Simulated scan of single mutants.
Amino acid sequence: MQKGIIDRFEGEYAIIEFYGKTKDVLRSELPAEVKPGDTLIFEEGKVMIDTEATASRKEEIDSLMDELFEE
């Protein structure tokens, strides 16, 4: 099992970060509903969205943003 985070899309490719390094993956090989910031699980030729890890990262980022932009 390998996990990656979608950084962005460039044309027909998704740029996915795996342990600090990026890799281009054809968008057609991913679930249709993926979006930047989603955590993906790559296992035995299948790709799934890790909704728990995605939500956890979003909460952490939102918290950091709140701290950064406090008045």
Rank of each mutant, 00 (worst) to 15 (best):
F18L: 06
A55L: 01
D50Y: 02
G37P: 12
T51H: 05
I49T: 03
E29P: 00
G4N: 04
P31R: 11
A32E: 15
Y13Q: 09
A32R: 12
K23W: 07
F42R: 02
S63K: 14
D24H: 10
I5S: 12
E12N: 15
E29W: 08
E33S: 15
R57L: 14
E33V: 14
R57W: 03
V47A: 08
Y13A: 14
E33I: 13
G37R: 03
G45D: 06
K35P: 07
D66E: 12
L40S: 08
E10I: 13
G45S: 07
F18P: 10
G11Q: 12
G45Q: 06
L30H: 05
K3P: 03
R8N: 09
M65E: 02
E10S: 12
E71L: 08
Y19L: 15
E43K: 03
E43I: 01
D66Y: 04
Y19G: 14
F18V: 05
I5E: 11
S56Y: 07
I41M: 02
F69I: 08
E67V: 04
I5P: 06
M48L: 12
I41S: 02
Y13G: 05
A14P: 11
D66W: 02
L40Q: 03
L40A: 04
G37M: 10
T22P: 02
G11R: 07
K35V: 15
D7H: 13
A32S: 15
E71I: 08
I15Q: 06
